[in-house]
């Protein structure tokens, strides 16, 4: 099966409720994410979503495209480019990057906010050689 040129986008509205739930589920209780008073004292001025929460949206996109192959052989290398504030709407992007190499197919991946700004950029690789 041929690897798709582009991966179906996923869009999530990020809320403080979601950030709080993520802190509980992941065990990451950095007050930058959950404590409005503390966050107001930082250069961000308000709470920021966990990077790993936003990163999960890319993994969701990859899982939708490649299923368990992603969970058992996927690779992800990303940079967090900008903070994601509760109230943001995040959309994932995945674009095929060239031909498969060494049995792996690479995608340029990103998360963009509602203004089109990159908040995460990077590359995902999946063990998927087109038939």
């Amino acid at each position: 099966m041929t690897a798709p040129e582009t991966l179906p986008e996923i869009t999530h509205a990020v809320t403080q409720t979601q950030v709080d739930a993520y802190a509980e589920a992941s065990g990451d209780h950095n007050p930058l994410h959950t404590d409005a008073e503390f966050a107001a004292s930082t250069p961000y001025g308000r709470t920021v979503a966990h990077g790993m929460l936003v990163l999960a949206f890319i993994s969701e996109m990859m899982t939708n495209a490649f299923g368990e192959v992603w969970a058992s052989g996927g690779k992800l290398k990303i940079r967090f480019r900008a903070p994601v504030f509760p109230g943001s709407t995040i959309t994932t992007v995945g674009v095929l990057r060239g031909s498969p190499t060494n049995g792996e197919t690479a995608y340029e991946v990103a998360c963009k906010d509602q203004d089109g700004q990159d908040v995460i950029t990077g590359e995902a690789r999946v063990p998927w050689a087109s038939a």
């Binding site: 979601q18 999960a56 939708n64």
Partner: peptide, 23 residues
């Protein structure tokens, strides 16, 4: 974790989302 990240992926529910393991 799935609820927190609103994971609507097709991954078998019998498996932990890989990013949950990472997180």
């Amino acid at each position: 974790y799935r609820r927190a990240v609103e994971d609507g992926s097709s991954l078998d529910g019998a498996l932990v989302p890989p990013t949950a393991v990472a997180a």
